[in-house]
Design a protein around this nucleic acid. Structure first.
Length: 652
RNA sequence: GCCGAAGUAGCUCAGGGGUAGAGCAACGCAUUCGUAAUGCGUAGGUCGUGGGUUCGAUUCCCACCUUCGGCUCCA
């Protein structure tokens, strides 16, 4: 990520990026005034601000230092230094860097600007080398910058963290200070308010407050426990998605959470993705036999990784090349088979497809499952519901003829569109991952690729949402379409993907009988349009900020009695809601009505029924909506009928 | 996995070498109230876990676990 941007890319910097880039220089100037030995490395603008990486041994920056640094930055802004572009020769640049002058305030003998030296060496021969000077600070920099430092006054430092030079751990660890900056004070203030908003919407916080899910250390990190409230939401979503799947001719299946290692050797997932899978599960007897034979741990691992000569031969024959080297083969009596927690559902679904002969008349076969998979994500990556180690994909695998690919991809996309529309998530984009023509990473017949890529491209175009084509982003076995959702705060989340696959049908030797009465190879489409229920719910929680529409809300109605005098009536209304299948609770506590309303509001219950003596007398309910406020008095039957319709239609 | 920060009551947080404190929540009593907080009272903690230093550790030191922010990664 720390690659030098090309000059062209730099020229495309927006005004805001240019400002933030200049702010990075101002921050470096300020930090150098405070700690003259700092060695600056790389300081670009980023999505929400900027950062600068630097090495500083004698002091570890903490948020307590921000005030001091910001004060110095404000001073520099006041000094209104001009940003001056200076073109120098490679030799001059090196000399300046050697003396510690680049990325420094003055010559620093014995303190050469080592990162800058490296950066100079990385600049291609013949390319112009430029510096930018503001006041006493000179930095190696291609620019561009704003004219004067006075522009850089609406700045705030946000965070400090560790980073590596060029992302390379071996180069030693640097300190990184993040900041943000805007043209105006108002925009900065607004950004900070937005960040506060984002914090309030954080699904981890709301998940706790609204009791939607729980992660327990004793169960394991990255493993979601869906508590009753969250389970209601997930169940409603799954019901909804299932209904849409039925409309589109999918068949639902169920498969177990584990499968034999050999299955994943056939698919090619094991041991290729071993790093991100849970370890093998081996039967006690087999383990004991290994122990009796005096196997070391390494030998056991080797026996697990290996496969039989027969399987190797089969797969190599099917693929038509030496995808599995001789070195992975062990004699059958040395092989150790075990089970794996499934990291994906496709092999199981493939086996269902392959469990009976298929005719072209049967195609496409669409097998859907809310399939739970397990992946060994790195511990530092885990995050609430959005990055976990066990999750349930809204998965399906479509087996079709080559001619059907385009229509099937289109079908997948229209499903996504229906669901996202229903949830009011209209701000999303589509990324079409194509192969990189220059790369050997992508296997298979170029003609098929062209056809599939074309199908994806055309399908994406019909969605009526922005899409980008990204060469090199395809899976190695086929092109794919990814959905990137933007939430209300503007953050992007990658959810599902649709992938066309020509490889697995080969590895599993899948076939169907064509009209010519001969076997043909089907094409597979993998699709998990929402990625996982976990991530999708996490995004959904933030999308709605916890204010779920009635059809999804764990508690749809809360009945609030004004006093004991209306309790009998309240119980009657409760019975009616129960009969109508509404999820409700009754709050007949001794609290005052204001307190009950406040609590229901905090619990983000969509509908509150305020029931006092007046309502009891007329058989009506006073309705309050958590977002729309007091809706006035309605006959109870009418309220219930409306709510039932609202839920049934999944209104927002 | 790497770097940094943090972990004290259900939640949000204060404190600090002499075995803990607030607000909210919970529970009890009183109050029966009309659209975002009624009052009083009670209970609740091996101060993340395990070691070490010490007469004594929640506080200091070490290791580990978990969380957060980044980095790297994401079939």
């Amino acid at each position: 990520m720390n690659e030098r941007k090309t000059l062209e890319e730099r020229a495309q910097m927006t005004d805001l990026e240019r400002l933030r880039h200049s702010c990075a220089h101002v921050m470096a100037t300020a930090i150098l005034r405070l700690w003259p030995n700092a060695q600056f490395a790389y300081g670009p603008p980023v999505e929400n601000g900027f950062y600068y990486d630097f090495d500083l041994k004698e002091h570890r920056i903490t948020p307590d230092d921000f005030e001091k640094i910001e004060a110095e930055m404000r001073k520099i802004a006041k000094e209104n230094q001009r940003f001056e572009r200076i073109v120098i020769s490679r030799e001059e640049a090196r000399a300046m860097a050697e003396s510690g002058r680049l990325g420094g305030l003055a010559d620093r003998p014995g303190n050469p600007s080592r990162f800058k030296i490296d950066l100079i060496d990385k600049i291609p021969e013949g390319e112009e080398i430029s510096c930018f000077k503001n006041g006493e600070f000179i930095d190696l920099c291609a620019g561009p910058h704003v004219g004067y430092t006075s522009k850089c006054k609406n700045v705030k430092l946000m965070a400090v963290s560790a980073s590596f030079y060029m992302g390379d751990e071996s180069k030693g660890q640097l300190q990184r200070v993040y900041g943000t900056a805007f043209e105006s004070k108002e925009e900065l203030a607004q950004h900070l308010v937005q960040l506060e908003e984002a914090k309030k919407r954080d699904h981890r916080r709301l998940g706790k407050e609204l009791k939607l899910f729980h992660i327990d250390e004793d169960v394991g990190q990255g493993l979601i426990l869906w508590t009753p409230n969250g389970a209601v939401i997930r169940h409603e979503l799954q019901t909804f998605i299932s209904e849409e799947l039925r409309k589109q001719g999918y068949n639902q299946v169920f498969t177990p959470h584990i499968g034999k290692l050999a299955l994943y050797k056939t698919s090619g997932h094991f041991p290729y993705y071993k790093e991100s899978q849970f370890g093998a599960i081996v039967e006690n007897e087999a383990m004991q036999a290994c122990a009796d034979a005096g196997c070391t741990c390494a030998e056991i691992m080797q026996r697990l990784d290996a496969l039989s000569g027969k399987l190797r031969q089969q797969i190599n024959d099917r693929v038509g090349s030496e995808v599995i080297p001789e070195s992975r083969v062990l004699p059958d009596d040395k092989l150790l088979d075990g089970f794996m927690l499934k990291p994906m559902n496709c092999p199981h679904h493939i086996k269902i497809f392959d469990s009976q002969p298929r005719s072209y008349r049967d195609l496409p076969v669409r097998l859907a499952e809310f399939g739970t998979v397990y992946r060994w994500e790195q511990s530092g990556e885990l995050n609430g519901m959005t990055r976990v180690r066990g999750f349930t994909q809204d998965d399906a695998h479509l087996f079709c003829t080559e001619d059907q690919v385009a229509a099937e991809v289109l079908g997948c996309l229209s499903l996504v569109k229906v669901v996202l529309n229903t949830l009011g998530m209209n701000d999303y984009r589509v990324r079409v991952g194509l192969r990189d023509l220059d790369s050997s990473k992508f296997t298979g017949d170029p003609e098929k690729w062209d056809k599939a890529e074309d199908a994806c491209r055309q399908a994406a175009a019909t969605l009526g949402v922005p899409f980008t084509e990204e060469p090199g982003e395809a899976a190695f076995y086929g092109p794919k379409i990814d959905f990137v959702i933007k939430d209300v705060i503007g953050r992007e989340w990658q959810l599902g993907t649709v992938q066309v696959d020509y490889v697995l049908p080969v590895r599993f030797d899948l076939s169907y009988v064509g009209p010519d009465n001969r076997p043909h190879r089907p094409v597979m489409i993998h699709r998990a349009p929402f990625g996982s229920m976990e991530r999708f719910c996490g995004v959904l929680i933030e999308h709605f900020a916890g204010h779920f529409p009635a059809w999804l809300a764990p508690e749809q109605v809360r009945i609030l009695t004004v006093s004991e005098k209306s309790e009998v009536f309240a119980r009657d209304i409760a019975a009616q809601l129960q009969a109508a299948g509404i999820r409700y609770t009754l709050n007949a506590d001794a609290d005052k009505i204001g307190a009950k309303i406040r609590n229901a509001q905090l619990d983000k219950i969509p509908y509150m029924l305020v029931l006092g003596e007046k309502e009891a007398a007329s058989g009506a309910v006073a309705v309050r909506h958590s977002k729309r406020g007091d809706l006035g008095v309605t006959p109870a039957a009418e309220f219930i009928a409306n709510l039932v319709a609202e839920v049934k239609e999944r209104r927002l």
